[in-house]
């Protein structure tokens, strides 16, 4: 499998001691990331199951209540996130090419877009708060057929947890951004950038499922 030169100390600085080659280290890190993404998918999978169960129990409620979500704002956020996925992908490419300046800029842009997403989401949430379109016992709006307190419970659970993931994504993007500015990455070593990119795409992907399921119910 691997041929070794254990005792040599001429290995690159980023190679951790317990790995024998940079390739081994890199493929381990990537496999680890993919498994982590699988856990995230299962985690949200549970929420999607809850969504599915209640949509099945109360289809009328979902149709009636979804009308109170703003499709323009949701659509805008979808565009923002897709664009941020693009800038992230370009950032990974910049890292591969060893272009530090471009990498830093694109990561910065991705961060900006992520904050834009949160701002829009914030507007939506404060609007819901005003109207009393809230989960469970805090629900106070009138005139929606069915069991809207459950719909909004699910809405806030799903988008809220997604929002937490956006924030986590921003934290790790900032982390690679700082390290990119320090010049820690090169065309030989950019695994963290790639892994953070993978994570960000997943956050994006989850939203792409959330948007139609919540906003575009028929």
């Amino acid at each position: 499998m691997i041929t070794q030169a254990t005792e040599e100390h001429g290995h690159p600085a980023h190679l951790e001691h317990h790995f024998s080659t940079p390739e081994q280290q890199k493929s381990a890190a990537k496999l680890g990331m993919w498994i982590f993404l699988a856990t995230e998918i299962l985690f949200f999978g549970g929420l999607f199951m809850a969504y599915g169960a209640f949509r099945y129990f109360y289809p009328g409620t979902f149709v009636a209540a979804h009308a109170y979500l703003s499709i323009p704002l949701g659509g805008l956020n979808t565009m923002i996130l897709i664009t941020s996925s693009l800038t992230m992908a370009l950032a990974v490419r910049a890292a591969q090419l060893g272009d530090r300046k471009l990498l830093v800029r694109l990561l910065g842009l991705t961060l900006l877009l992520a904050s834009g997403f949160l701002v829009v989401k914030g507007f939506e949430y404060s609007h819901k708060l005003h109207e009393g379109l809230l989960p469970g016992k805090y629900f106070s709006a009138k005139g929606i057929a069915g069991l809207p307190h459950i719909f909004f419970g699910i809405y806030f659970a799903m988008t809220g947890l997604h929002g937490v993931h956006v924030v986590a994504g921003m934290i790790v993007i900032s982390w690679v951004l700082i390290r990119a500015r320090q010049g820690r990455y090169s065309a030989e070593y950019y695994t963290p950038v790639e892994n953070v990119g993978l994570y960000w795409h997943l956050v994006d992907l989850i939203w792409i499922f959330l948007f139609p399921l919540l906003y575009l119910v028929k």
């Binding site: 699988a38 989960p135 469970g136 069991l147 419970g153 699910i154 806030f156 659970a157």
Partner: peptide
């Protein structure tokens, strides 16, 4: 593969207690 499901289950339970959403409460549907 299984632990994330426990995680979301417990979060939903916490959510249910905090907001009385009703997803596990027959009286609320």
């Amino acid at each position: 593969l299984a632990t994330p499901i426990l995680a979301i289950t417990l979060l939903l339970l916490i959510f249910e207690r905090l907001f009385e959403v009703g997803i596990f409460n027959p009286a609320m549907g």
